[in-house]
Computed example of a mutant assay.
Amino acid sequence: MKKLKKNSASMVAEARARIEEIEIQDLIQLLDDDNVVVVDIRDVRERQRSGFIPGSVHAPRGMVEFWVDPESPYFKEVFGEDKKFIFHCASGWRSALTVATLQDMGFEAAHLREGFSKWAEKGGPVEMPEPKS
């Protein structure tokens, strides 16, 4: 088996040590704040299967860096707004790495520490997608 210089767990730990982490209860309190944008980076199939945080913006993990970069042809206007961005995934691993990378780019953001997998269990509202007809 090939030995890696760093494993994914150590990369997540390094990212978490230098980014802002938001607790579920704190994000629940921020959901009605017009200056907060919740960004879901999970795969579209995860959103369809498990639901999503009401009002969240979906930005697939593979496109985030391009969507936040105003010089990219893939830039999305929502990321040009002067707001607080809080990213999340299922467990907080992908979002930690994403936010650390965005911070390296100069884009300020935070992430939901425990992710969506604990969201509903801890009282967070969940919206289900409309069934396909």
Rank of each mutant, 00 (worst) to 15 (best):
E121K: 02
R16A: 00
K2Q: 12
I41T: 06
D40E: 04
V126C: 04
M128P: 02
E127H: 10
S10Q: 15
H88G: 11
R94P: 04
S8I: 15
F75S: 00
S56H: 04
G62Y: 10
P125N: 09
A100L: 08
Q25G: 03
T98I: 09
A17N: 07
P70S: 00
F52I: 09
K3V: 15
E71L: 08
I53P: 04
D43P: 01
K3A: 13
H88E: 13
E114K: 14
F66M: 14
G80Q: 02
L30E: 12
S117L: 14
V126I: 10
P60C: 03
K5M: 12
R113K: 11
I19S: 09
R18Y: 02
R113T: 07
S95L: 06
R94N: 04
G123A: 03
P73R: 02
P70W: 00
I41R: 00
L97C: 07
Q48E: 12
M128H: 05
P60H: 09
W93T: 15
F66Q: 12
G115Y: 04
H58T: 02
Q48M: 03
F107G: 01
M11W: 06
V44Y: 08
S91L: 15
G62M: 09
H58V: 00
G62C: 08
Q103H: 15
A59M: 07
V44A: 14
N7Q: 11
E114Y: 12
I24V: 15
M63K: 12
R61D: 01
G106W: 05
E108C: 07
L31E: 14
E71Q: 13
A120I: 08
K6D: 14
D104M: 10
S117G: 14
G115Q: 05
S8E: 12
H88A: 11
R94T: 09
L27S: 00
E14D: 12
A109L: 07
S72K: 01
S72P: 05
D34L: 10
D43N: 11
E121C: 01
G92M: 00
